[in-house]
C-alpha cells in the first residue's frame, strides 16, 4: 500500500473553492485507480486460472476419459472450431481423449428450478445419441430436498446412459421402463423435472448442430465409435 504521507496537510477552511473540491476528488480517484489497477493486474491471472480450472473439472467429469477440450463457436449456420469475427461462442465443448480422438461433446444449459435458475453441464455422445454424464454447476435448490439433484447418487445414475430420442421425459421413481426416461427424486419432483427440462432444452438447441458437426468432422464415423 502506498501511503500518502508526503501530502502537505492544510488546515480545513470552511469555504473551499471549486478547485479544492475537484482536487480532493481527483486525489481520491488517483489513489483508487492506483490500488485498483495494481490489484487487478496481480489477481487477474489467478482468477482466470480458477475459472479455467473449474470449467476443466466440469468437462472432465461429464466426459469420461476426456483429456482435452475446445470451446466451439456458432457462425449462424453451424458449429465451428474456427473462432473469429462473426462467430459467437457456443456453450458447446468438443472433448478429446489422450490420443486426440473425439469422445463427445459437453454442453452447458440452464433452466428455472424450484428456487432459482439451475445451471448444468452434460456430456453428449452423438455416436450413441446418449447423454453420458451430468453435473450441476449452480443451483439454489432447497438443502436436504432439491439439492439431491447433485447429491443423490441414484438420481445421478440416470444420466450415465440416457437416450435423448424422441425426448427426455421424467417419470416417478421405480417406473423407468425406457432408455429416455429419468427417475425423479421422491420429495423433489419439481427440481428433478427442472433438470429433465434443462437437458431436453439443451438437446433441442444443440443436438442437430452437434450431429451435423460430427458428420462433417468425420464422414465415415469410424474415428469416434465408442470402444
Amino acid at each position: 500500500m502506498s501511503e500518502p504521507s508526503n501530502i502537505p496537510l492544510r488546515s480545513d477552511t470552511q469555504e473551499a473553492g471549486p478547485m479544492r473540491l475537484v482536487a480532493t476528488l481527483g486525489l481520491a480517484g488517483f489513489f483508487a485507480g492506483l490500488l485498483l489497477v495494481t490489484g487487478f493486474v496481480y489477481t487477474l491471472p489467478m482468477i482466470e486460472a480458477n475459472k479455467a480450472e473449474s470449467l476443466r473439472v466440469a468437462v472432465y467429469q461429464v466426459l469420461e476419459g476426456c483429456a482435452g477440450f475446445d470451446q466451439l463457436g456458432w457462425d449462424g449456420q453451424k458449429l465451428t472450431t474456427q473462432l473469429g469475427t462473426g462467430v459467437e461462442l457456443a456453450p458447446v465443448y468438443l472433448g478429446r481423449d489422450a490420443s486426440g480422438r473425439v469422445i463427445g461433446f459437453a454442453v452447458t444449459t440452464e433452466e428455472p428450478g424450484f428456487q432459482d435458475i439451475i445451471r448444468a453441464i452434460y456430456g453428449y455422445d452423438p455416436t450413441t445419441d446418449q447423454i453420458i454424464g451430468m453435473e450441476i454447476l449452480e443451483s439454489k435448490e432447497t438443502p436436504g430436498l432439491g439439492d439431491k439433484i447433485f447429491k443423490d447418487d441414484a438420481f445421478r445414475a440416470n444420466f450415465t446412459a440416457l437416450a435423448v430420442q424422441p425426448a427426455i421425459v421424467s417419470v416417478k421413481k421405480g417406473e423407468k421402463a425406457r432408455p429416455n426416461e429419468v427417475e425423479a427424486i421422491t420429495g423433489a419432483t419439481i427440481s428433478s423435472k427442472a433438470v429433465t427440462r434443462l437437458l431436453q432444452k439443451g438437446m433441442e438447441a444443440w443436438r442437430q448442430p452437434i450431429l451435423d458437426f460430427q458428420a462433417q468432422l468425420d464422414p465415415q464415423g469410424e474415428n469416434t465409435k465408442s470402444q
Binding site: E111, P112, G113, F114, Q115, T142, I190, A194, R197
Partner: peptide
C-alpha cells in the same frame, strides 16, 4: 413473512 414467501418457490416449474 419470509417463510410464507417460501411457499411461492416451485410455482414456475411445477
Amino acid at each position: 413473512l419470509s417463510m410464507a414467501f417460501m411457499g411461492f418457490a416451485g410455482m414456475f416449474s411445477a
